[in-house]
Every structure is written in C-alpha cells, then in structure tokens.
Design a protein around this nucleic acid. Structure first.
Lengths: 145, 145
DNA sequence: AGAATTTAATTGCTATGATAATTATTGCTA
DNA sequence: TAGCAATAATTATCATAGCAATTAAATTCT
C-alpha cells in the first residue's frame, strides 16, 4: 500500500463502519418487527410527539435531500404513521405530522432503539467519544466549502 | 435531547460525515471527468495492474455485496475498462481483470484520487488518526457477532 | 400590476445497498 | 454414482442517495 493511499484507507474504514452500524440497526428493526426502516424512524423521531414540520425542514434536520424526504413521507403516510397538511400561510409547503398510530409507534420503539444504538459503542468511554466527535466534525468542516 | 439518545447522535454524526466524504469525492470525480463513480474506482483499484479476481473476492475486499459487484462489473465492462473471463478450474466463477484502457485510467486517476482523498483529513495529525482508527475498529468489532 | 426570481415539493434517472430467490456448477457423501 | 448440499453469479424487489428538471406558489423588482 503506497503511503499516499492511507487517506483512502481511512475513508474506506469510515464508510465501512458507518454501513455496519446502519446494517446492524436495520436488522434489529426487522427482528423487532418495527415495520419501518431506520431512515423512516429518523424522520418520525423528529415529529414526536406533535411537531409540525415541512419536508424541507425535515430534510435539513435529517441531512437528507428533499426528493428522499418526499419518498420517505410517502411511505410513512401509506403506513398510516404520518399525514401531510397543506400549510395555511404557504400553500407550497406541506406540514407533516404523526398520526395517533405514529405517536404510539414512536413511544413503543424509542427505548428499544436506544438499546440498539448503544451496542455499537461498547467498551468506549467519554474521552473516546469526545475525540471521535472532534475528528468527525473536523472532517465535516474540511469538506464544507 | 434525552441522555439515552447520545448514541443515536454519534451514529448520526458518523453517517453524516461518511456521506459527506463520499459526496465530496464523487463531485471531484465528476469535475475531473473521470467517467467512473467512486465505487467503480474502488473495484478498479483492486484489479490494478493485472490482477485477476472473482466477483466474490472483489465483493469481500470492497465490503460490498455480490449483487452490487455484478452491477459494477457490468458497468466497467460496458465502459471497456474491465472484462470477465470464465475461470478454467471453476466455471461458476468469472475472473475479472482490467483492459488496457482500464489500466491506463487507473494510472491517470491514482495521483488525483490521492489528492482528493487527502482533503478530508486536513488539520488532523497522526494521533488523531490512530485514535480514530481505534474507535472505528472497536465499533466494527462490537457489531461483528 | 406584471415580469422575473426564488422556493417547496415532486418526478425521473442512475447508482448503490440489502435481502430473497434462481440458475449453474461443484463438491460431498451415502 | 446418484442425490444432496454448498458455492458463484445473477436477477428481482424495495429503499435510499444524488442530480437534474419540472410544477406550483410565493417573493421581489421594477
């Protein structure tokens, strides 16, 4: 491995680990019969308990694109977990909110999801987290321009 | 933010950063007119200069699934950068190798890709990398069972 | 007010990720 | 050796990511 490729290796390890976390969580979601994907869950969590939010706002807060949000909200609505309401002030916007079923599902899932998410961080301590966050934030800012 | 959700936050930050690295690299690939995606590049790199590898081997080394490899190799073949050869010993396998064009493309891309990959890691030092790798590897192993 | 610009959401397209199912081939074993 | 299990690749399906283009509505600028 040539010296100049170490940065490719770091990027690869980062992507690999990120995918493993996602895959692990998704498998647990299936095992628990949650009936939603990890990404759908992330959107639901931000609407709990009774937030109204436009899709643009949801896209920004979940770091997804607006086309992706359209599709995720489509699926949540099809499952009866969320609903779109046309904004009174601005008819281009749809305010998304959870249905009663959606609220109950979040409440049912929340503690289990916390447990699932915790598994990745075993054997790691406060200092590890802090430094880890520092590195990730630095990378993030390095590529922000 | 409830205390138990900090692990979700860490996972989110990790995924967000991973996606930003990928997106940055892909945009640079387009800007340089490489004509291949980051994932296609990763496969090509492992075949350079004249390796023969089955798709299963490529899948494992790139941490992708075999369906994904099938499609990536399809695309590389369609672009004239790689070729499949039926394995002499085992006719289920196809040995994949770069064409002459593919070899030249890797040689052309390599130094530029190294530069692109380097950008993410600005302002970070040896110790940061080591600790970062330690954390990523720990996560990876935590979820390996 | 009317025209141009901006914004929110949607749609279309390509690529990737994950899983399940299928096909072809190989290896094992009773 | 006949049958069965394991393996390699492919195909199909669904979900997500990213980009470009479109539509509708709101805002801005003369």
């Amino acid at each position: 491995m040539p010296q100049q490729d170490i940065y490719s290796e770091y990027s690869f390890l980062l992507e690999k680990t990120s995918r493993r976390i996602k895959r692990y969580a998704q498998k647990q979601f299936v095992a628990f019969n949650f009936g939603v994907t990890v990404d759908q869950w992330m959107v639901m969590k931000h609407l709990y308990p009774s937030s109204q939010m436009s899709q643009s706002e949801l896209a920004e807060i979940t770091f997804k694109g607006t086309p992706t949000l359209t599709r995720i909200v489509d699926l949540l609505c099809a499952k009866g977990l969320a609903e779109r309401m046309v904004d009174g002030q601005d008819r281009r916007k749809s305010q998304v909110h959870l249905t009663e079923t959606g609220i109950l599902k979040v409440e049912n899932m929340q503690p289990k999801v916390s447990q699932i998410r915790k598994a990745a961080w075993n054997k790691l301590g406060e200092q590890d987290f802090e430094h880890f966050q520092y590195v990730l934030n630095t990378i993030y800012q390095n590529l922000s321009v």
